[in-house]
Nucleic acid binder design. Sequence first.
DNA 1: CTCCATATTGCAATTTAATCTCAGTTACAG
DNA 2: CTGTAACTGAGATTAAATTGCAATATGGAG
Lengths: 140, 140
Amino acid sequence: MEKQKFREFLTTKGLKLTKERDEILHEILIMKKHFDPEDLFVRLKTKGSKVSRASVYRTIPLLVEVGLIEEVERVDRHAHYEKISEDRHHDHMICMKCGKVIEFYSPTLEMLQKEICQKENFKGVRHSLEILGYCEKCGG
Amino acid sequence: MEKQKFREFLTTKGLKLTKERDEILHEILIMKKHFDPEDLFVRLKTKGSKVSRASVYRTIPLLVEVGLIEEVERVDRHAHYEKISEDRHHDHMICMKCGKVIEFYSPTLEMLQKEICQKENFKGVRHSLEILGYCEKCGG
DNA sequence: CTCCATATTGCAATTTAATCTCAGTTACAG
DNA sequence: CTGTAACTGAGATTAAATTGCAATATGGAG
């Protein structure tokens, strides 16, 4: 389970599992969608947590390093993150008009990554495909 | 040619082709690789241009809008742009160790975009695939 | 369980990419 | 040419993200 994974990671690195780190991860885990650091901070505050903005910003890179979350996009001037779902990776389609984000998964794409990397002698770890365009509603 | 395209765009929008805008586009056109706004600014300054940082930042969105350049990645906390090559779109492989960027083109990927979009009723305009991993030198 | 070196925290100050303000300047349609 | 709306540079400003530091908490050693 995610919390266990995080705990192990911290121990291995000689870091400590604090109440703050636990609260932050917990909040991310129960969240459904994208979030940005400020989001997360406000959410925690609202719930009565005493976690500081600094701790949120300091914990996020750790969670990225363990592979529990990933940066999915940059809107305006701030980063957005998302919990990495346990089952499978997915990519995004982003509507250039309304900003709607559609998630999709393509097995072909997963295979394609391997193929492309082989050709360039590159050891691919992960990828992110972003398709920009117009959603159904915004026509185009 | 690019400068002509930019000129037409400006005219259509009721904007003006200034010495600064011309210098900025010119510098981008003669550059080979990625650049970030600060890069561009310093480069112009070095060459004796009087262009201000503000003008660089103000011109970039225009060039993105005409389709002459595109944002290709975010390193740390600043955006990187790249001239859109006339011939064909390409994507990037980025080494997580040394930061090396390998460009590649995959016709399969181009077709795949159409397919995926059709399934979701999304009108895809462009995409960007980023594969993160380790280059030949950095092994993995 | 207690001790304590070391990691961590909150707060506020700081950094830094990017944006904005505004008075003076310039492009360009007519 | 001329008028006017767009543009510019310089520096102030914004806001996301980071950092310094004194106080505090964690968790392994004993």
